[in-house]
Design a protein around this nucleic acid. Structure first.
Lengths: 319, 319
DNA sequence: TCCTGATCTGGGAGCGCTCACACTACGCAG
DNA sequence: CTGCGTAGTGTGAGCGCTCCCAGATCAGGA
């Protein structure tokens, strides 16, 4: 039995007699043989691993459940294709350098880029390196050279604001997300789509982060600027939980005095009181599609159309 | 300039002249050379990667912030030593098989085992395989053959129950965690340490999961069994947030009617209303120590003493 | 002067695979 | 009977490193 035959069996078994195939398979089971991955990588120049790169400072990562849903969904989708996920953090400058060195070392076959900000140098470097890359969310400033998968942020925001208006609310305000991220920009655009000419500058406060605390701060400021507001669309559930805290502290009833709408339909939406009306983002699907796009790119397929997945309004007690 | 010299420079530079060293370093910078990791792995039979294995069904992973703190801390600690973390899920039987095959293929130099249950076959396999392994939390049934790092669950629980008693509460009950996990068992033991002879069977309800929903269910049952309870120690913050919901639904004021103590000091502790008195688990430190122990084991050091890290009572408004 | 040991360099061997190609055997059409 | 295509097998080469040994150079002591 030659090495070549064994290798053929292990890689799909074309041009192998049934006798040889059975013999090899039996031997594999008996000896518990597992191919050495480094040797295989060296010979094929494919590592079987994909990097999942988080460009985000500590606080958000600790807090935001969205990342974890995405992380899990990507891990699973990769595992189904016998690929493994390597988790890389690129929050600080030092980490950033390490990630770049790592990618250049061709440890991985591709890269999933999560939560990028406008001007993030990693996006530019990634697109320049020639390594297959797929971003979660529209990569601001690199829409044309980096493939991406995103939820329909703008459409979802529009649906939410329309819902608030349909509930009879007169003064619909918004706590927007950070404006250097695609989610922040798009969801605010959706708000303006509906509010249109009636929009006033004071009705909008952009939070300085996607966190609970940032949502609380932004809501407090919004209450100062617009004391008679009766509805607020908050650009994420986590920020909305902070907004609820600010409203409670100000003595406003939800939804009696103020209707609150969130975004994401993450688990915090049902853990707060009252449960949040929100916009469901199909994050599990986003993860799967990211993996699909990445594998297509690794295989050399040339599709560049970014994927945009539909969102869905989920009505609960807060509006 | 020979390959040998270059290799020597790249690996610490013993027995290299300063001239050669400078020349190689310059060349590396100029050409942007990065060593190929598969080739290096093949030659050294070290992969530079460590597996982070989650043995847990979907729901908990989505919910519990503890995992993410641990995940991040391990990722960071590994990165500082130029190692990379591979995330593996072993929730279902199929995933389980894949993980085993993966480990046997020597893709990784070691394994961090998180959230194991009593009777988990992965623990047995891991300890048998000879691959360096460190578990988070005492690995029930394998305390002597698998190294571990854990917080002082029992001591922390004791401090919390003592605190409730010191607050003048007469009927201190507990929502315990699942009894097939070390956290569940140890924290309940800490409760009994304080309550001692006065303990009654009806005062204890073990939840069937570590989730918000499980905490809510368990609390509802506890209220049925002990209508006059005036304090409850809940074995995790996430479950405590569920317990708060159940108490609110039953019309009980917190902390007026019922004092509620949690465990973990995760971010949910400060996001619920009222903020939870809880027990801080040094999870970041746990992650670092796990990595330390694992690297020591990989290096062949023989220490087997499991690490137990101190906890700390954090008093907030719920008690 | 010669020997010894320390420092440094070069190159062969080998890590465990896959790939490409040469080769055999065999069936079937011309 | 010859030629040709196809299924199946064996083998050399090579992926890009590290390890190890042989050899060169040089300083310092006998």
């Amino acid at each position: 039995m030659s090495r070549g035959t064994v290798s053929r069996v292990l890689n799909g078994g074309r041009y192998v007699s049934t006798a040889a195939l059975a013999a090899v398979q039996r031997a594999v089971v008996e000896t518990g043989y597992v191919a050495n991955s480094s040797a295989r990588s060296l010979a094929t120049s494919r590592s079987g691993a994909v990097a999942f790169v988080l460009t985000e400072p500590q606080e958000r990562l600790f807090e935001d459940p969205n990342f974890h849903v995405l992380l899990r969904s990507c891990t699973q989708a990769l595992a189904e294709r016998d690929l493994v996920l390597m988790l890389l953090l690129a929050g600080s400058a030092a980490e950033h350098q390490r990630v770049l060195r790592f990618l250049r070392g061709r440890h991985v076959d591709g890269m999933l880029l999560v939560s990028t900000h406008l001007g993030d140098p990693l996006v530019a470097e990634a697109s320049r390196s020639g390594l297959p890359v797929v971003a979660a969310g529209r990569p601001l400033g690199h829409e044309h050279d980096v493939r991406s998968v995103a939820a329909d942020d703008r459409g979802g925001a529009r649906a939410m604001v329309e819902h608030l208006v349909a509930r009879g609310r007169r003064r619909v305000t918004t706590v927007a997300g950070p404006q250097d991220t695609s989610g922040g920009v798009e969801r605010l655009a959706g708000y303006f789509d509906v509010v249109g000419r009636r929009a006033r500058a004071v009705d909008v406060v952009a939070a300085d982060g996607w966190t609970h605390a940032a949502g609380e701060r932004a809501m407090a400021r919004l209450l100062e600027q617009v004391p008679d507001l009766d509805a607020v669309f908050v650009a994420s559930d986590l920020m909305a939980s902070g907004a609820l805290a600010a409203l409670r502290r100000a003595g406003r009833e939800v939804p009696g005095d103020v209707a609150v709408g969130g975004f994401d339909d993450s688990r915090v939406a049902v853990q707060v009181d009252p449960p949040l009306t929100t916009v469901r983002q199909p994050l599990v699907e986003v993860g799967r599609r990211m993996v699909d796009l990445l594998l297509a790119q690794i295989a050399g397929e040339a599709e560049v159309e970014p994927a945009v997945l539909p969102t869905e309004l989920v009505v609960r007690a807060s509006t």
